[in-house]
Design a binder for these strands. Structure first.
Lengths: 145, 145
DNA sequence: TATTGTTATACTCTATAACTATA
DNA sequence: TATAGTTATAGAGTATAACAATA
């Protein structure tokens, strides 16, 4: 990589750095997940469905910062593959709780290993302590506001 | 924000946190830049063109992690508004150096102020020292590999 | 009235391949 | 042969609005 542009002001903007880190990281993670026929977005929904929390579609939308209509399509895709199921909440029949099937949990476990490896590869320039600190700061940044 | 999902494993994946921080940050920055008829991507090209470095389109593509064909469209848009110009390199006539016009530099300066304010707003949950540390770690993360 | 999920639509962003002109 | 830029196209991601069912 040619370093000339690293001296510009843009290279110090967190917004730009986040966008670039995400572009590179997502491309790498998508490629790593391709053998499982998952992408970062579908993996994220599957992982939450397999976590035991049984989130509603509304919760998924808020947490993943996606529109509710996008969650419909993602859940449709996973449901048609037998990886997750919708269960209507008896107390509020508008809500669907999303949970993983045994097949979904198995795939989520495999995918988590792959994503963790992809993360380590993408961040090979950072020490383990730096990765932990980055995780901590990003968690604050991602959930502020 | 409902915190139930923060206890899941996904909430500790840097890939996910980066994607969420970027989604929220970009949406906010795009809204802030709208009065100038810029978005994060077009602003990034304009900022680099106005930096005095006169990058080639190839350098812009690598640095912004965009495909060369996307740079064509972005530069076309800025050029048609009189904000940047293409200058053919005399020594390698395949290359175009992209530089901002006076109007482009003026707009870039205005936009930089807006983006800096948007960044501070997006990261209001972090102290100034934490923002600096995050910037430092993201710089490493964004340019590894 | 307000909210959850759904459908539909348009727009932006991303990925790929083929082409040209130069080197 | 290889590279910078261009064009074209398709697919993924994002944003909005309207609707049905339910609260």
């Amino acid at each position: 990589m040619d370093d000339r542009l690293l001296t510009t002001g843009l290279a110090d903007e967190i917004e730009f750095l986040t966008a670039r880190a995400r572009a590179v990281g997502t491309a790498h993670a998508n490629a790593s997940l391709a053998p499982l026929d998952l992408r970062v977005r579908s993996y994220s929904v599957l992982a939450l469905a397999a976590s035991g929390v049984d989130p509603t579609q509304r919760e998924l939308a808020e947490f993943l910062s996606l529109d509710a209509s996008q969650i419909v399509a993602l859940v449709d895709g996973l449901e048609s593959r037998g990886l997750v199921v919708r269960t209507q909440d008896a107390r509020d029949r508008r809500s669907n709780a999303i949970s993983a099937t045994p097949a979904g949990r198995a795939l989520a476990a495999k995918a988590a290993v792959i994503v963790r490896r992809a993360e380590t590869e993408s961040l090979s320039g950072l020490t383990s302590a730096e990765r932990d600190r980055l995780r901590e700061l990003l968690k604050k940044a991602a959930f502020t506001g």
